[in-house]
Design a protein around this nucleic acid. Structure first.
Length: 424
RNA sequence: AGAGGAGUGGCAGAGUGGUCGAAUGCGGUGGUCUUGAAAACCAUUGUACCGUAAGGUACCGGGGGUUCGAAUCCCUCCUCCUCUGCCA
């Protein structure tokens, strides 16, 4: 959520930014926000005045009672009735105004960084970098959904039986490969200075609001109705929410965490033939890195995180490219996002395996995540996160790219983790 | 899950209807003293909103209510502790 003060101070910048996102009706909404905020201020001022008078009267009544002047006290009491009624009305108006204002603010996405290119769809994303050789597969190379059946390592039908589509069962070497990847990613992150956490994978409503899944995106999460909890769509939610309503000192910065969790996504309406196999699931594993940074250093941190994620892909020897997301493809809460895509050679497709973003203070504003400056002012921090990495598509690419007539070669860095060199 | 108890400032802890944003202690910060340090002493020390400022308002787990007036009374939710039960 943007701060009203920021919108007021940088109206042109906000409008330009929203334009990069192809956000409709921006000018009117911005004006409306400012108008509502003015109204809010005015209502509060009026009400504060009434409350101050009421408070003074209550004190007088107390003194009169003590002095035994019952009659005078009763006269005063009668006078407070009107004050109370007016104050109540003003409070209601103020709350209504605030609700309307918040609703509008929730609707305004983050302002893109100047680097973000204009554009409407993923076709307008900029390919910043392409690394690694695309392997030339032999004749008859198979897509991963055939390979997993052939080697019996991941079973979709069993998952359907137990739960439903998109909840695969990993078996034998398939399960071990999962575990190896998770441990490899966690160990690497630890070496890069990220402290591991194991957060809950169900969250309450407050946390959903904190990172922006709520309101409006509840349809993308599984909901535990009996407790009003949600299954996390990403570890970003619980990990970032550890710092909800927190005021840090500058010395504590940066905060760097890594966490492995399963992730749950309903993906309502986004199912289709193009999402076969591991390309899109309802439950998948992901190692996530989260960073909380000083506003002056957040872009430095973004580059560092991007570099770190790329180092993982290089160690896994997967060909990848880095995209700078355009305004139309940029997530609601993000100011700048890089997507990392690996090439899955049998599908002949680039698959997104990581998305690393700087949210600047957009999330921090909702979270009330702040720090104290040297001169004791409280200021919003910047939050960043990135997948490092999401497993299923990495597995898809490994299976497809490393297939040989004798089986699938496991990337060297994973061998110590899984204990075998080949899936055969 | 049942019975009982409790949630107050960074921490500890007083306050059970009136001048309480809240005693006191510890901690933090600044200062005095000192060659320096410690000790002692003095001052200061929450968050948010409104206001150019002076100042005002709100917040004592969250929400609602009673009252002229609520940290204090009532309702509700949450959390923690003790005992009983259940369980990986």
């Amino acid at each position: 959520m943007l701060q009203v003060a920021f919108i007021r101070a940088h109206k042109e910048k906000v409008l330009q930014g929203l334009n990069v996102r192809n956000f409709k009706d921006a000018a009117r909404q911005v004006e409306e926000i400012i108008r509502l905020d003015d109204q809010r201020k005015q209502l509060q001022q009026q009400n504060d005045e009434l409350l101050a008078r009421g408070k003074a009267m209550a004190k007088e009544i107390g003194l009169l009672m003590r002095a035994g002047k019952q009659e005078e006290a009763h006269e005063r009491k009668a006078q407070t009735a009107e004050l109370k009624a007016r104050s109540k009305a003003l409070t209601e108006q103020r709350k209504a105004t605030e609700a309307e204002l918040t609703q509008l603010l929730y609707n305004i996405p983050n302002i893109p960084h100047p680097k973000v290119p204009a554009g409407t769809t993923e076709a307008d994303n900029i390919v910043a970098k392409e690394v690694g050789e695309i392997p030339a597969l032999p004749e008859g190379a198979k897509p991963h959904w055939e390979l997993i059946e052939e080697y019996d390592i991941i079973d979709f039908n069993l998952g359907v039986k137990i739960t439903g589509a998109g909840f695969p069962v990993y078996k034998g070497k398939g399960a071990k490969l999962q575990r190896a990847l998770i441990n490899f990613f966690l160990d690497e992150a630890e070496k890069a200075g990220f402290t591991e956490v194991q957060p809950p994978i169900v969250i309450n409503e407050d946390s959903g609001y904190g990172t922006g899944q709520l309101p409006d995106k509840e349809g993308q999460m599984y909901h535990v109705a009996s407790e009003n909890f949600y299954l996390i769509p990403t570890a970003e939610v619980p990990i970032t929410n550890m710092y909800r309503d927190v005021i840090l000192t500058e010395e504590q910065l940066p905060i760097k965490h890594v966490g492995y969790t399963p992730c749950f996504r309903r993906e309502a309406g986004s199912w289709g033939s193009h999402v076969r196999g591991l390309n899109r699931l309802h439950q998948f594993d992901k190692v996530e890195i989260v960073q909380i940074q000083h506003p002056d250093k957040s872009y430095e941190a973004l580059e560092e995180m991007s570099g770190y994620i790329q180092s993982l892909l290089q160690k896994l020897a997967l060909p990848y490219r880095v995209l700078v997301l355009c305004g139309g493809d940029l997530g609601f809460t993000s100011a700048l996002t890089y997507d990392m895509e690996v090439y899955s050679a049998a599908q002949q497709k680039w698959l997104e395996v990581s998305s690393v973003s700087n949210f600047e203070n957009f999330q921090a504003n909702r979270l009330k995540l702040r720090y104290k400056t040297a001169d004791k002012k409280t200021q919003l921090l910047h939050t960043l996160n990135g997948s490092a990495l999401a497993l299923p598509r990495i597995v898809a690419a490994i299976l497809e790219n490393n297939q040989t007539p004798d089986g699938i070669k496991v990337p060297g860095v994973l061998v110590p983790y899984c204990g075998f060199r080949m899936i055969d």
